[in-house]
């Protein structure tokens, strides 16, 4: 309520976006270049058990004497591939259904929206657990489970926007020159949706990372020797009392950092794409 605020009024999304991109790109590079970055294998004993962080082993070693840094950079590959494939799955299905539902309207629209809304309000991790439990815990099913639970996120957004765009004049114009429905949806509506899809994608990627890590923490992602951050944490639970903090701190930090990177990108993009100027 102070009546005086001097200088720059509001931070632009630029800072958030840059910070997010730096975090995400760094983590992607680390995992892609894992072989170059670390000399150690992520699944072989490389030294004593439970060595605290040191120059030799920056993130320490675990019970089996594996290098935690190696496990984490290689683990990034698991996390990133699950999350990227899953979000592509939910994005394509959600966008397609949302576009059709919004464009066609009527009973189909009402039915689909109702189902999607019902899924949307359901606790996502519980649904993901149930799906992987039924399909069996492995990496493909983790992708399917995470892919399914986030379909409504894209559906709702795309449907809403489609309704708006459909009402606008240029769609009328396209129709009057005889463009068919499919063409209108793909050529005229879809391009207009891209900015919003981009924002939803980055926020959703953050959610998907946390869900993947949650599944892995509960033991429903990849089978044990393969490194995966969430799973490392489940192992770490046993060492609270022994004080082997590095077994817990680093894997969880990576999950949080990566999720935060995407959330920052989402926040920045939101600011940039719909700038609300303070008058």
């Amino acid at each position: 309520m102070k009546s005086r605020i001097l200088g720059v009024f509001k931070m632009r999304g630029g800072g958030f976006l840059a910070a997010g991109l730096i975090i995400v790109i760094t983590i992607i590079l680390l995992s892609l270049l894992a072989d170059v970055i670390t000399p150690y294998s992520p699944i072989k004993r490389v030294g004593d058990s439970f060595i605290p962080p040191s120059w030799e082993h920056p993130f320490g070693t675990n019970k089996l004497g594996m290098d935690m840094f190696a496990r984490i950079v290689y683990g990034g590959r698991t996390v990133l591939s699950v999350v990227i494939l899953a979000t592509i799955l939910s994005m394509s299905i959600g966008t397609a259904l949302g576009l059709i539902s919004g464009y066609v309207g009527g009973k189909l629209d009402r039915g689909l929206s109702f189902i999607m809304d019902s899924i949307y309000v359901f606790p996502s991790l519980i649904l993901a657990i149930a799906i992987t439990a039924v399909l069996g815990p492995n990496i493909i099913n983790a992708i399917i489970a995470i892919g399914i639970i986030y379909i409504p996120t894209y559906f709702r957004m795309v449907r809403g926007q489609t309704l708006q765009i459909k009402a606008s004049l240029f769609i009328e114009a396209a129709r009057s020159i005889g463009a068919d429905s499919l063409r209108i949806m793909v050529k005229y509506i879809l391009p207009n949706l891209l900015p919003t899809i981009l924002v939803v994608f980055s926020m959703n990627a953050a959610d998907a990372i946390l869900t993947e890590a949650g599944l892995a923490f509960l033991g429903y992602s990849v089978p044990p020797p393969t490194p995966d951050w969430g799973f490392e944490l489940q192992v770490g639970v046993n060492y609270i009392l022994s004080g082997y903090w590095w077994l817990i701190f680093f894997p969880g930090l990576m999950v949080t950092l990566l999720a935060m990177g995407f959330a920052l990108i989402g926040e920045g993009l939101t600011d940039i794409l719909n700038p609300r100027e303070v008058t």
């Binding site: 309520m1 102070k2 009546s3 005086r4 605020i5 001097l6 009024f9 303070v278």
Partner: peptide, 9 residues
Amino acid sequence: IRVLPPNGE
């Protein structure tokens, strides 16, 4: 009456 918007002075 000194009730300018927060960015006014």
